[in-house]
Design a protein around this nucleic acid. Structure first.
Lengths: 123, 123
DNA sequence: CAGTATCCTTTACGATACTG
DNA sequence: CAGTATCGTAAAGGATACTG
């Protein structure tokens, strides 16, 4: 789509950030690491219930964006640890606000949904 | 996928919220409405550069979740105004933290990306 | 253990055309 | 103006099998 006739630069940057962290797993990985500090690959996998493939992709992107560090130890079998960078920690702070809101208000959203759906029935 | 062997309820709720607002347009609509107060359909469409179809779907979902109100006036041609509910405003506050972080730190992410990609070249 | 490679299905989304 | 309906494409993501 052509990038014409729409909103300002700050809007574009939000789009960029959403493109980066708006997927299903990035935020959850950040939250998990923020809570635990250091985690290994399969530990994260089990914790989140994510497929191997998607966790691999997600972690690589987060590393690329400078939000997490990957540390591999030359053991057999391999040991790889992930943790937040300083930038990742700062992002985690911003995410905490959002996740706290989610926890606090999801019930209200569920109620609104039920009301809306009920109203649609009578139409 | 089976919901077994993974993280706690709060994690599931984050997933739920992401499923709701993790799409390409929901957050941007919230941000737009938060900044402007009241907006009409085509006004939002032009502002965001979103297709008619997706804006329609997004607004309906946001209304269903109790985050925006839809007010239709019986004019010809029709006039429809959208604005945030109280719940939507409160969500907008949480989103502001995230979007501010985005604006402040996207350059650093871009740099990290460039570094990462450069390092991959020499491998 | 920590991935990669391949395949397949579902979903997101835009473009276009049509309606009250 | 504010949508809906239909279609087609591209991206997301899971399942499974394989590897150092």
């Amino acid at each position: 789509m052509k990038d014409i006739g729409h909103c300002t630069t700050s809007c574009d940057r939000i789009k960029d950030v959403l493109a980066r962290i708006g997927d299903k797993w990035s935020l959850l990985v950040i939250i998990a690491l923020k809570g635990t500090g250091v985690m290994r690959f399969n530990e994260l996998k089990r914790h989140l219930g994510v497929s191997q493939r998607m966790l691999s992709i997600t972690l690589r992107e987060l590393e690329r964006d400078g939000l997490v560090t990957r540390t591999a130890y030359p053991t057999v079998p391999p040991t790889v640890e992930y943790q937040l960078t300083t930038l990742g920690e700062s992002f985690g702070m911003a995410v905490r606000t959002l996740s706290q809101w989610a926890i606090d208000n999801l019930d209200e959203i569920d109620t609104a949904r039920a009301d809306y759906d009920a109203a649609q029935q009578n139409a």
